[in-house]
Design a protein around this nucleic acid. Structure first.
Length: 512
RNA sequence: GAUCGCGUAGCUCAGUCGGUAGAGCAACGGACUUUUAAUCCGGUGGUCCUGGGUUCGAGUCCCAGCGCGAUCACCA
């Protein structure tokens, strides 16, 4: 096609990316593709945006249908659809490589062997990134490549975009996350990870359901966001002229369900926290919270360990060992259980209750608030600096200090500690579980204490949930409660080093 | 929010001491019926992130801003 045709095509186009509005190079490339699209319509009478196709099979299954040494009618005939990854125009013989989510396969379209009038021409005009439907027998070329020798080729959708570099693909991290739909087909491991996420979450649901837990959904729009210490996102309801928050945790509603008599509940859903973004934090993240009446933090421990082992054995059936960042993590062996205090002493050489030495150690570690901070908060700061990143294999850190666990029941024999654990894997906090507080008087005192300690800014998002206290006065059974970061579990199970890789559309600043 | 690094063609990347903007792939025209990142021939393609400054001259040096990444902080 010559320049005349190109300009004609331009004049017919009224899309927002109309090349006539911007005669740059990029729109020239777009114009070339639009011209090809019109050529399909005008010269071949083919709709470049396709139609319904029945009887398609995944490319991986089509490959599996290859029969060694089969000739002629003995060859399996398949019908597949996929995106064009490579195109080698050899004149009267067109070589294409098609990809779908299950894999790649080579296509050969020979002018002599394609049975339809338009099939060969469609193959000849194919651009990288087009979606094609191909039918034909599965055979092997003389170099041993499994190939569909096309009897028919149809266009399912013409691409107007320029595909990334065909060998190195899409590398730029920003572009990969902003144009995830390109990243997904160019880098097959992206789809594989997201598919694994889907399967893993499905397994978590089955696991919980089989244990007799009911899946529930509680409000995301809340008049006050409670259940965790975090800043919420604020929004507004016009109809009622009401300021609302997006939930930071479902905890207080799930406990209300315990009060009402649903003794085993869980929720898998999104929480929203108005905080920073890094490789293990997205502002909206998926968590699973579980409440079990007449359980405690130890029943939650057993449940958590069993569930993670179940998931790991699904990913690595032989060993239950999954590598993360170069280190094999073993989920098959019983997880280590060690107290918070023992870990502190192990790392620092003295007891965490020796507050003078804690303060001294904090100063050595260069903590600028070492002189003024509350004793237990300082203990926790030193703990996080000296212990946390050493916990590589799955480890339950038991018996947290009560002072840093505001919603937890203190241990009867040692009120400074409480029935709470945190699960650490590869230095990452995977979640926490409590023996839940069900004494309304103690809960009320803890709410007040939290408000008292909060500064001006924190005051605006710390909650005093009167209705929740009413619920506790009605009476909540003793219970174990659990919260786990689902995205982080998926990271560990799929070996993804950043949370963004396990979220289909991770948060990005808007493009300027 | 803080510090450091990065930002060059659609994509992947070079660009020396401050002296005319480069390659590969893609895209475009042509040849080819067993190719494997096909090959061969021909001709294209740039807001060097944005805005200032220094200079005879800035992709390059300086300042500010934007975006991304890493580390830290907050948090899970």
């Amino acid at each position: 096609m010559g320049p005349n045709m190109t300009s004609e095509t331009n004049n017919q186009t009224e899309s927002p990316t109309d090349p006539t509005q911007d005669p740059g190079y990029e729109s020239q490339l777009l114009a070339d593709r639009l011209a090809k699209l019109e050529q399909m319509r005008d010269e071949l009478g083919v709709n470049p945006y396709g139609q319904r196709v029945d009887g398609l099979e995944p490319i991986a299954e089509a490959r599996a249908k290859y029969v060694e040494d089969a000739e002629g009618d003995d060859r399996a005939v398949v019908q597949i659809a996929g995106r064009v990854m490579l195109h080698r125009d050899n004149g009267k013989l067109q070589w294409l490589q098609l990809r779908d989510m299950t894999g790649d396969i080579q296509i050969a379209a020979s002018r002599k062997d394609v049975q339809t009038d338009t099939g060969f021409e469609i193959a000849r005009l194919a651009d990288l990134g087009d979606l094609l439907v191909v039918e034909g027998p599965v055979m092997k070329t003389r170099t041993g490549e499994i190939t569909v020798w096309a009897s028919d080729v149809n266009i399912a959708c013409k691409t107007l975009a320029l595909p990334p570099e065909k060998f190195k693909g899409l590398q730029d991290a920003e572009l990969r996350y902003r144009r995830r739909y390109v990243d997904m087909y160019v880098n097959p491991e992206v789809c594989a990870t997201l598919a694994a996420r889907s399967r893993l979450i499905s397994m978590m649901r089955s696991f919980m359901n089989e244990r007799g837990f009911l899946e529930v959904e509680t409000p995301i729009l809340q008049t006050q966001a409670g259940g965790a210490a975090a800043r919420p996102f604020l929004t507004h309801m016009n109809a009622l002229d009401l300021d609302l928050s997006l939930r930071i945790a479902p905890e207080l509603f799930l406990k209300r369900l315990l009060v009402g008599g649903m003794n085993r509940v869980y929720e898998i859903g999104r929480n929203f926290r108005n905080e920073g973004v890094d490789r293990s934090h997205n502002p909206e993240f998926t968590a699973i919270e579980v409440y079990e009446a007449f359980g405690n933090y130890l029943t939650m421990l057993e449940l958590t360990e069993s569930m993670l082992r179940h998931l790991a054995l699904a990913m690595a059936p032989d060993s239950g060992i999954i590598e993360f960042d170069g280190q094999p993590l073993n989920y098959a062996e019983p997880f280590r259980q060690v107290t918070y205090g023992d870990l502190f002493e192990e790392a620092n050489g003295f007891a965490m209750t020796d507050f003078d030495r804690v303060r001294q150690r904090a100063t050595e570690l260069g903590m600028t608030n070492a002189a003024t901070l509350d004793d237990w908060l300082l203990v926790n700061q030193v703990w996080e600096a000296t212990v946390e990143e050493q916990l590589i294999q799955p480890t339950f850190v038991m018996d947290y200090p009560s002072a840093i666990s505001p919603l937890t029941r203190p241990k009867p024999d040692n009120p400074a500690l409480c029935d709470r654990w945190e699960l650490m894997v590869h230095g990452m906090e995977l979640g926490t579980a409590y023996t839940e507080l069900n004494d309304p008087a103690v809960q009320e005192a803890k709410f007040r204490q939290q408000l008292k300690g909060a500064d001006q800014e924190e005051q605006t998002y710390r909650t005093f949930d009167e209705d929740f206290l009413n619920a506790l006065r009605v009476g909540m059974p003793p219970a174990g409660g659990l919260g786990l970061g689902v995205d982080r579990i998926i990271m560990l199970m799929t070996g993804s080093r950043t949370i963004r890789d396990v979220i289909p559309f991770p948060f990005m600043r808007p493009e300027t």
